[in-house]
């Protein structure tokens, strides 16, 4: 599960919508040293690199697209149509990815996605961060990531791909199962 950038799937509306979350951890290799240059705290307050937020959405949307066709298709991220992120994700925060399936056919699929940030311990301006009296902040929308996926077996251009589905190994199916959304298959 080393290249899985979503921790749990919260909601699956087959063929329509999938919601997943990702907790950002200080101990993650990818976070180490990836400092936020904008808040002046430098490497002491690292962030999850933005490309991995896009990857998180790609996995969220990719599972939705794969599930829609029973995981028979090899679903490959082909294009990032749009990626806008307005805020950083620091350790301790949770990212929530909501992917919506806009279009799917034999050739591929298009998805749109919303990225929200949930901070369990907000430091509102003027609040004393040592006193945890304030309720957690509501989810804040921080960006949108729209993607296009290719069902590569239908877009071969003369190239042969391996017969087994190398995109959907056990990891994503396991994630669906442990999230309580798919039975033992």
């Amino acid at each position: 599960m080393r290249w899985i950038w979503i921790d749990r799937i919260l909601e699956l509306d087959p063929g329509r919508r999938l919601v997943a979350i990702k907790h950002v951890g200080l101990g993650e290799d990818a976070v180490q040293g990836h400092f936020d240059a904008t808040d002046g705290l430098g490497p002491d307050r690292p962030v999850l690199p933005a490309p991995l937020i896009i990857e998180g959405m790609a996995q969220t949307a990719g599972v939705l697209v794969g599930h829609a066709r029973g995981f028979r298709e090899k679903v490959i991220l082909a294009k990032i149509s749009r990626a806008e992120l307005d805020a950083d994700a620091h350790p301790g925060a949770t990212l929530r990815y909501t992917a919506t399936l806009d279009r799917i056919d034999d050739a591929g699929a298009a998805t749109s996605g919303a990225v929200d940030l949930l901070d369990p311990a907000p430091c509102a301006p003027g609040a004393d961060p040592r006193v945890a009296t304030a309720p957690p902040a509501p989810a804040v929308p921080i960006g949108r990531v729209d993607l296009v996926f290719s069902h590569i077996d239908h877009n071969r251009a003369g190239v042969e791909f391996p017969a087994h589905n190398f995109v959907f190994g056990e990891s994503f199916k396991t994630l669906l199962r442990v999230s309580g959304l798919e039975g033992e298959t």
Binding site: A78, K79, S81, D102, R103, A107, G108, A110, V148, S150, N155, A157
Partner: peptide, 9 residues
Amino acid sequence: SIDFLDIVF
């Protein structure tokens, strides 16, 4: 090539 798929959508 992939843009053609996107354009069609």
